[in-house]
Lab assay of single mutants.
Amino acid sequence: NKFNKEMRNAYWEILHLPNLNEEQKNAFIQSLYDDPSQSANLLAEAKKLNDAQA
């Protein structure tokens, strides 16, 4: 299933973003579980936030 793979990839990438705190990571990961079809968008948002907090 495409979403499972996308979701897993997004999950791991978000988990390893160095500039997000636990609360931010948890919020993105919760959103992933709530709507796996948004994995790519959530990952993009997480990366933007990560870069902004660098």
Rank of each mutant, 00 (worst) to 15 (best):
A10K: 02
Y11V: 12
A27W: 14
S39K: 04
K25G: 02
K48T: 08
L42F: 14
E22Q: 10
N41S: 10
A10P: 00
A54E: 06
N41Q: 07
S31A: 05
K47G: 03
L43N: 03
Q38H: 07
Q53R: 04
Q38E: 11
S39D: 01
E23P: 10
N26K: 11
S37P: 12
E23H: 11
D35R: 15
P36N: 06
L43Q: 08
N4W: 15
L42W: 14
W12T: 04
L43E: 03
F3S: 12
S39A: 11
D51K: 12
A27E: 07
F3Q: 07
P36D: 01
N4I: 04
P36T: 05
P18H: 07
S31M: 07
F3K: 13
F28I: 03
L17M: 09
K47D: 02
K2Q: 13
K5Q: 11
A40P: 06
E45F: 14
P36E: 02
D51N: 09
L32M: 04
K2G: 14
A52P: 05
N41F: 14
P18Y: 14
Y11D: 01
S37A: 09
E13P: 00
D35N: 09
A40D: 03
N1Y: 01
A10I: 03
L32R: 00
D34L: 13
N4Y: 14
K5V: 02
A54D: 09
D35G: 08
K5M: 01
I14T: 01
N4V: 05
Q53H: 07
Y11W: 10
Y11E: 04
H16P: 01
R8L: 10
L32Y: 00
W12G: 02
N19H: 11
E6W: 02
D35V: 12
E6D: 11
P18W: 15
E13K: 15
A27K: 10
L49V: 11
Q53P: 07
R8N: 08
N9P: 01
L17E: 01
E22S: 14
S39G: 04
L32G: 01
P18Q: 10
K47R: 10
D35E: 07
A44L: 10
W12M: 02
I14M: 09
E45H: 13
A40Y: 15
Y11K: 09
N21W: 11
L17H: 04
N4M: 03
K2R: 10
S39W: 15
M7S: 03
H16Y: 07
K2A: 09
E6P: 01
Q53D: 05
K5W: 05
A52I: 08
E22M: 14
K47F: 06
N21I: 10
S39N: 04
N21S: 12
K25M: 12
Y11L: 13
I29A: 08
N41V: 05
N9Q: 14
S39M: 13
P36I: 02
H16G: 08
A52Y: 12
K2F: 12
E22V: 12
L17Y: 04
K5N: 02
E13A: 15
H16L: 05
N26D: 06
L32I: 04
E23Q: 12
E23L: 12
E22N: 13
I29H: 04
K47S: 05
A44K: 12
L49W: 09
S37G: 05
A54N: 12
M7T: 06
E45M: 15
L32F: 02
M7P: 01
A54M: 10
E6N: 04
D35Q: 10
N9F: 15
A27V: 11
N1V: 05
P36H: 03
P18A: 10
Y11T: 04
K48I: 09
I29L: 06
N9Y: 15
F28D: 00
K25T: 10
A44E: 13
K25D: 00
N4P: 13
A52K: 09
Q30A: 13
K25R: 13
D34T: 14
E45K: 15
L43M: 06
K2S: 11
N50Q: 05
A40M: 13
E23R: 14
N26S: 13
L15W: 11
S37K: 10
L42G: 02
W12N: 03
L15Q: 06
K5F: 01
Y33N: 01
E6Y: 05
L20F: 03
A40I: 12
E13S: 15
A40S: 09
I29M: 04
A44N: 07
M7Y: 07
A40K: 12
A10M: 03
W12D: 02
H16I: 03
E13M: 15
L49H: 05
E13G: 15
N21Y: 10
L32S: 01
F3G: 14
N1A: 02
E6Q: 06
S39I: 11
I14H: 00
N19Q: 08
I29V: 06
E13T: 15
R8W: 15
A54V: 10
K48S: 06
N9W: 15
L42N: 05
P18S: 07
Y11A: 08
H16E: 02
D34N: 12
E22R: 15
Q38G: 07
L32P: 00
F3W: 03
E45Y: 15
E6S: 03
K5G: 03
E23F: 14
D34V: 09
Q53F: 09
S31N: 07
K25N: 02
K47E: 04
M7F: 13
K2M: 09
L42R: 12
E45A: 14
L32V: 05
F3N: 13
Q38A: 07
Q24T: 08
E22A: 11
D51M: 12
L15S: 03
R8T: 05
L49S: 06
Y11H: 05
F28P: 00
D35F: 12
K5I: 02
K25H: 06
P18N: 14
K5L: 01
A44Y: 11
A52S: 10
Y33F: 14
H16W: 05
H16S: 09
K2N: 12
K48G: 10
F28K: 04
E6F: 05
L15D: 01
L15E: 02
N26F: 13
K5Y: 03
Q24N: 04
N41D: 09
A54W: 14
K25A: 12
N4R: 03
S31I: 05
Y11P: 00
S39L: 12
D35Y: 10
W12H: 04
E13L: 15
F3Y: 07
E13Y: 15
R8P: 00
L17R: 02
F28Q: 01
A27P: 04
Y33P: 03
N19P: 00
S39F: 15
N1S: 03
R8E: 14
Q38Y: 08
K5T: 01
S31P: 03
A27S: 12
H16F: 07
D51V: 09
Q30M: 14
P18L: 10
M7H: 03
Q24K: 08
P36G: 11
W12F: 09
S37D: 06
N50R: 05
K5P: 05
A40R: 08
Y33E: 04
Q24E: 06
N50A: 08
E22W: 11
E23G: 09
N50L: 01
N19D: 04
A40F: 15
Q38P: 02
E23T: 07
A52N: 14
Q24V: 05
D34R: 14
N1H: 12
L42M: 06
S31W: 11
K5E: 15
M7A: 13
D51F: 14
